[in-house]
Design a protein around this nucleic acid. Structure first.
Length: 324
DNA sequence: AGTTACGAGAGATCGGTTAA
DNA sequence: TTAACCGATCTCTCGTAACT
């Protein structure tokens, strides 16, 4: 059948390179030497280019080879094409060698930053030229952004994901109730969920607790008095400390001083934070590294870094609760 | 059963060289 | 600059296997 595609796109990069060499030296033999090809080969390439353009690019006169009007017209354009080609090849090389390694990472906004510090440190150490863009979003918009190709990988906890997602579980954490000092919950080691009934409650807008609770298929027996809505974790926690009410939050979400927490029981509700990617999408080298680090990282050690990001350690059930 | 991915083989095309 | 030739590469086709 032949090669129709090559016929349609006749102009080749080597032809442009040869053209620029002749335009520079104004001598076919020296241009051929410069390009490391024989002179007939270069001549033929120039002729093909001239055929493509429909006119002579060079006027061949003994000892006076020079650009024609068409050649002068074409020169800046061909220089631009050649430069752009060189630039994109250089960028591709950098990208392959991870000299510049872009990674768009989505993080569910309710994951404790203290949990992520160790992971980020490892990633930065392993990929020195890491160009990391982190986007924090609520769980469902995060998955939508991942599906839309706006993110490369995401750290999310949901009971279920769309079929297109590949889910790699990283760590599991239970849900707690956070309440102010002196609250009646302080006398309990763990709090049955039904005990929340009638309590003043501070609603963390992006909390995924309801998804995980609904996934258990149990009837809801806790009707609370919502006193405050906020997507700001620090505000909710400050309100709790001020005695405005209590709130449900994941085990490792860093909290402010002045709060107490107890694990929820009857039922125990937990979430698994997973690294999520899109099935079938090819991974870049830096994505492969990020996935490998995420899967081998000691996520249970991350909270020791809490001080580094300005949060205090979590007080869990009187300090007696081991990590999962 | 239909689709997709992959590899092998054949033929066409291209860029290279040498010789004239 | 052209002609003849060579080796590499590309495209197409076909068969096979894996998957849905």
């Amino acid at each position: 059948m032949g090669r129709p595609l090559r016929r349609e796109v006749a102009m080749e990069m080597h032809q442009i390179r040869y053209f620029l060499a002749v335009a520079e030296t104004l001598n076919f033999t020296r241009a051929a030497e410069q390009c490391n090809v024989t002179q007939p080969s270069l001549t033929r390439a120039i002729q093909k280019l001239e055929e493509e353009m429909g006119g002579l690019l060079f006027s061949r006169e003994h000892h006076n080879t020079h650009l024609t009007e068409l050649g002068r017209l074409a020169q800046p354009h061909l220089e631009a094409i050649y430069s752009a080609n060189a630039a994109v090849l250089a960028e591709a090389k950098q990208y392959r060698s991870m000299d510049r390694a872009p990674l768009k990472l989505g993080v569910m906004c309710t994951i404790s930053p203290a949990r992520l510090v160790g992971f980020f440190e490892q990633l930065k150490t392993r990929v020195p030229m890491l160009d990391l863009m982190i986007r924090d979003l609520p769980a469902k918009p995060l998955v939508e952004a991942l599906l839309a190709g706006e993110l490369d990988v995401a750290l999310v906890a949901l009971p279920s994901f769309p079929e297109r997602c590949t889910v790699r579980p990283l760590f599991t954490e239970r849900y707690l109730i956070a309440f102010p000092k002196g609250h009646r919950f302080e006398a309990m080691n763990a709090i049955p969920l039904a005990e929340l009934n009638g309590e003043d409650y501070l609603q963390r807008v992006h909390c995924e607790f309801r998804y995980h609770f609904e996934a258990l298929g149990q009837p809801k027996r806790h009707n609370v008095n919502v006193r405050y809505h906020s997507e700001r974790e620090d505000w909710v926690q400050a309100m709790i400390a001020a005695g405005m009410g209590c709130a449900v939050m994941p085990e490792h979400l860093a909290i402010l001083p002045g709060l107490s927490t107890r694990v929820i029981i009857d039922p125990e509700v937990s979430r698994t934070v997973s690294l999520v990617t899109i099935a079938g999408r090819r991974f870049t080298p830096v994505e492969q590294v990020a996935i490998r680090i995420a899967q081998t990282h000691r996520w249970d050690g991350a909270e020791t870094k809490a001080g580094a990001v300005g949060w205090c350690d979590v007080e869990v059930g009187g300090g007696a609760m081991p990590l999962p």
